[in-house]
Amino acid sequence: MICQECNQRPATLHFTNFSNGEKTELHLCERCAHEKGEMFMMNQGHGFSLNHLLAGLLNIEPALQPNTKEHFHQEEIIQCSRCHMTYPQFVKIGRFGCAHCYDTFKEQLGPIIRRLHSGNSVHNGKIPKRAGGTISMQRNLTALKETLGELISKEEFEKAAELRDEIRALEKRLAEQHRGGE
C-alpha cells in the first residue's frame, strides 16, 4: 500500500477513525505521519520529553470534539500570518512562533491552556505598566463594581455612595485615556 499523502513511499502506519458512526481510514508513510503531527500515537523508541507530552495533549483535543470527520484531511491548515507557523508545526514542537500565534490559534488554544493550567484560562497576575495599558484600571474598576454590589445588598448605602463616586472618577479617567490613545 502506498502512502496517501505523498503517493510515493509505502504506507507503514494505518489509522482508523470513527466519528459520528462514520469510519475513515488513513494510510501514511512514517515521514508524512510525522509531518501531520500524528506521531504521538505511536511514539515508541524515541526519547520521551515534555515536548512529546505536550504534543500529545495538543493533538488529543480535536479528537474529543464532535465533527472531526475532516480531521485527517485538514484541507485548511491554519497558519499564523506573521511568523507563518502552521498549527501542525506548533503541535509538533510545542512552541509558538511569535506573540501573534496566540491570536491565530485562539480557537484551538482555549482547551489546551485549560488543560495545562488546571482549568484556568485567564491571566490573573501582574500587568506591565506600558504594555498593559488600561487593563489594570479596567480590572480595578470591575473589582470596585463588585464591592459596590456587595455594599448595596448589605444596605450600607453611605459607603456605597462613596464608592460610586470613586467608580465614576475612575471611569472618567479611563475614558480620557482611551481618547488620548486614539
Partner: peptide, 24 residues
C-alpha cells in the same frame, strides 16, 4: 519594561514561547 516592549495579552498575560509558561 520601561524601555523594552513586552508581548502581553489581557487574557493570556505574558505571552511565552511555550504555552506551559503563559500568564505570569
Amino acid at each position: 519594561e520601561e524601555s523594552l516592549d513586552y508581548a502581553f495579552d489581557e487574557k493570556y498575560g505574558y505571552l511565552t514561547s511555550c504555552p506551559t509558561n503563559a500568564g505570569t
